[in-house]
Design a protein around this nucleic acid. Sequence first.
DNA 1: GTATGAAGGTTTGTGGCACAAACTAGTTTG
DNA 2: CAAACTAGTTTGTGCCACAAACCTTCATAC
Lengths: 113, 113
Amino acid sequence: MKPGAQAAIDGVLGLDRLVHEPARLAILTVLSQAEFAEFGFLEMACRLTKGNLSSHLSKLEAAGLVAIEKRFQGKRPQTRVAITDAGREALTAYREQLSALIRQVPKKAARDG
Amino acid sequence: MKPGAQAAIDGVLGLDRLVHEPARLAILTVLSQAEFAEFGFLEMACRLTKGNLSSHLSKLEAAGLVAIEKRFQGKRPQTRVAITDAGREALTAYREQLSALIRQVPKKAARDG
DNA sequence: GTATGAAGGTTTGTGGCACAAACTAGTTTG
DNA sequence: CAAACTAGTTTGTGCCACAAACCTTCATAC
């Protein structure tokens, strides 16, 4: 193994499963680029059904990675979601472990035994 | 959203779950750096129990991402695992989607609206 | 005013999967 | 022969992602 490889492996094994799940990773990524997002926007941007989105948001909220604000737009309920500071930190940490991993993988799909 | 963000999100949502699982990602990463690895080595390097490792290897083999060779080392059975070309390709494809994702995430954990 | 459908979600049900404990099979040691 | 070790596989379980079903309110048609 290359030097540093074990550290990258350990990083992979220690990945935060909450962030690692693709649906939640998509949500956090979208949220990291805006001040907030509406439920309906996330639904489209992340290609999730309402039910699925709802349950993922609940988990992210329970972990403190997003903040959910329910308000009324006229007479209709509207849910706004924003990433928290903890959420940004979690995403950054996740990103860094992925970077470490990616650096370990050979670029070409060739036998380098 | 930044330009290209939706493509990165789509990439995340389309991630190969087989490769995305941390344990298997660790296995493939180790294997990508050697011609083959023994069961016992993977067990240590990937910090997996035998049972867990065994089942992950079976899934990777069923998908054609690794090749498993059973032989005898003296009188003892020994299992050798190697990544296949398909495995390398899957890992490369996975890596590229992660790269696209990482480029979308702001570097600093600061409010950038 | 009352079906009909859409917006905006939440709750419920279920199939699949990661994980470890228990088990199998053979080997070495005392 | 019995105990303990090596090398793995099979079994059992608890969690979780996902979507279907459901709820409530508003808009529109009849």
